[in-house]
Simulated scan of single mutants.
Amino acid sequence: MKTLVGYIAGLLFGLGLTISGMTDPARVLGFLDIAGAWDPTLMFVLGGAVITNFIGYRLVLRRPHPFFGECFQLPTRQDLDIRLIGGASLFGIGWGLSGYCPGPAFASIIGLSAPLFAMLVTMVMGWFMARAITPKTA
C-alpha cells in the first residue's frame, strides 16, 4: 500500500507540473530573465507549493504516526556543510542552464528532446559521481 501511495503522489506531482506549465524549460528560463521578457509563473507555482506544504505539514504532524508507517522520518541535521552547499549550487547552476529540475525533467520524458536527454544523462552521471566520492559510513 505504501508503494501504491508513493506512485499516486508521484503521478499527482507530475500532473501538477504539467498543468502549471513547469515542464516547459522556457518558463523557468523566462523567470530567470529579469532584464528581458520576465515570466512570473514559476513564482506563483512555488508560492502555492510552499503554502500547501506549510499547511500540510502542520496537519499531518498532528497525527501520532503516518498512515502507512510506524513513525515519521524527518530530517534531524541542521548544519550547513560543504556537500550541502556544493550540491545546492550545482543544482541551481544546472537548473539555470537547462531550465529543468529533476521533477519536471522526468515528467517531460515522454517528449524527449536532445537538451532534455543531455540534462538527464548529466544528472544521472552526477548521482553516480556523488556516490563515488562520498565516504562510506558503517
Score class of each variant (00 low, 15 high):
60 V>I: 13
81 D>G: 14
5 V>Q: 06
51 I>S: 06
17 L>P: 00
78 Q>C: 12
86 G>E: 07
38 W>V: 01
74 L>S: 09
3 T>H: 12
97 L>R: 04
122 T>F: 10
122 T>N: 05
40 P>D: 06
128 F>C: 13
28 V>P: 00
130 A>F: 14
132 A>T: 08
136 K>C: 05
31 F>A: 08
85 I>P: 02
21 G>T: 01
47 G>N: 07
88 A>M: 15
117 F>K: 10
52 T>C: 12
109 I>Q: 05
74 L>A: 08
72 F>C: 07
26 A>P: 03
136 K>W: 09
49 A>I: 11
107 A>E: 00
6 G>R: 10
74 L>Y: 07
14 G>V: 03
39 D>R: 06
28 V>W: 02
73 Q>W: 09
22 M>R: 00
98 S>N: 01
88 A>L: 15
53 N>P: 05
44 F>A: 11
58 R>E: 12
23 T>F: 00
132 A>W: 14
49 A>P: 05
37 A>Q: 14
113 S>R: 10
43 M>L: 15
126 G>H: 02
56 G>M: 13
88 A>K: 06
33 D>H: 12
38 W>D: 06
101 C>Y: 03
76 T>A: 12
20 S>D: 04
124 V>C: 08
124 V>I: 15
91 F>Y: 12
4 L>F: 14
37 A>H: 14
83 R>Q: 13
